[in-house]
């Protein structure tokens, strides 16, 4: 199992103005089949991707925010969100939707996937990866 690499998907764009956010999520879902050690980072405007209560009916594009809640089924269980990016945008963790996974190693206990980290911690997380993919 030594060929498992650490992949970080870095999300810095809001959800609907460009295709970046949706493309990132699709690549994550496809890439999950390769059974690598995958984490997602949300910073700058990327934190807007995770806000609760999104409704795209009026803009005619798909609301893909519910799909983040399926990531646990794909064994993607680490979503790092940068606290400074939330603060700068007047958001708190309570403005984000709840995303959980069931921990196979802990009797399938439901645990939160979102981990709010500081900018300094985010920098360390980025520096700890084998591959960083940016969106």
């Amino acid at each position: 199992m030594s060929d498992i690499k650490k992949f970080l998907y870095v999300n810095r764009k809001p959800p609907y103005g460009t295709i970046y956010a949706l493309e990132s999520l699709e690549v994550v879902l496809i890439g999950a089949a390769f059974e690598q050690d995958v984490s997602l980072a949300f910073l700058d405007d990327g934190v807007f991707q995770l806000t609760r209560g999104q409704n795209t009916d009026a803009i005619g594009v798909k609301n893909f925010s519910p799909t983040f809640r399926a990531l646990g089924d794909y064994e993607v269980t680490k979503l790092y969100v940068e606290r400074e990016s939330l603060d700068e945008r007047g958001l708190t963790e309570g403005d984000l939707q709840e995303i959980t996974y069931e921990d196979e190693d802990d009797d399938w206990e439901e645990k939160p996937s979102i981990r709010v980290v500081s900018r300094a911690e985010m920098a360390e997380i980025m520096a700890d990866q084998d591959v960083v993919l940016s969106f």
Binding site: L29, A33, N63, A70, D73, Y74
Partner: peptide
Amino acid sequence: EYYDEYQIAPAVRVLIKA
């Protein structure tokens, strides 16, 4: 029901696990 909740059709292994 899965699609209604998550807005995706799951991959086979995910479907089978679910």
